[in-house]
């Protein structure tokens, strides 16, 4: 009886651990998306690239479409750290143009002169940049026209602005 109970107990623990492990992964994914999305909002990516990443016009000018861009991880990371010379895309890493090491596009602030990108309002740490790059790659890049699911994922299920994108139900459902 004792052996049976012990086995039962171990199985119960194992299944709890198994369940935790599964929800742990889902939780980890959600946490990365939340961290990346938080950076996307706080660093004002949303102001120019819009909530859907499709970019377009605005006070900041014509922002790149992150949905269509072919930039890879290294490319996205470089653009966020260093900005884009000649455009309003700011550089987000403190001091990246500051020393002699030519971190950005193998050039320096001196050489860029008037093409120097603006500095961002909030500088980002490496892990913030990594989080927002992963967010863009997972939830924005290559995703075609933004739809209702994208809207709800960004603004929430109750968001009024998503209602006009909600799919209409066919009558026979």
């Amino acid at each position: 009886m004792q052996l049976f109970l012990a086995t039962l107990f171990r199985a119960a623990i194992a299944s709890v651990i198994f369940a935790l492990g599964l929800s742990g992964s889902a939780f980890a994914v959600e946490k990365v998306r939340s961290a990346g999305k938080a950076v996307y909002k706080k660093a004002n990516c949303v102001g120019c690239h819009k909530w859907h990443g499709g970019g377009g016009g605005g006070y900041g000018g014509m922002a790149l479409s992150l949905r269509e861009t072919p930039l890879d991880t290294a490319g996205l990371t470089m653009v966020i750290r260093c900005g884009r010379p000649g455009t309003r895309m700011p550089y987000h890493q403190r001091g990246v143009y500051g020393d002699d090491e030519r971190h950005c596009y193998d050039t320096s602030a001196e050489e860029l002169e008037g093409a120097m990108p603006p500095r961002a309002h909030y500088f980002l740490k490496d892990r913030d940049i990594a989080a927002v790059v992963e967010y863009v790659q997972t939830w924005i890049q290559g995703r075609g026209t933004p739809g209702y699911d994208d809207c709800v994922a960004f603004w929430g299920a109750d968001a009024r602005r998503c209602k006009s994108m909600a799919p209409t139900r066919p009558d026979n459902e």
Binding site: G56, G57, G58, Y59, G60, M62, R88, P118
Partner: peptide
């Protein structure tokens, strides 16, 4: 950034046709 030929505004989208630099 000119408005496209035959284009107009989409409601709730920016319609500045350009931007600022400082």
């Amino acid at each position: 950034s000119p408005v496209e030929e035959g284009g107009t505004n989409i409601p709730r989208e920016w319609f500045t046709a350009g931007g600022i630099t400082n």
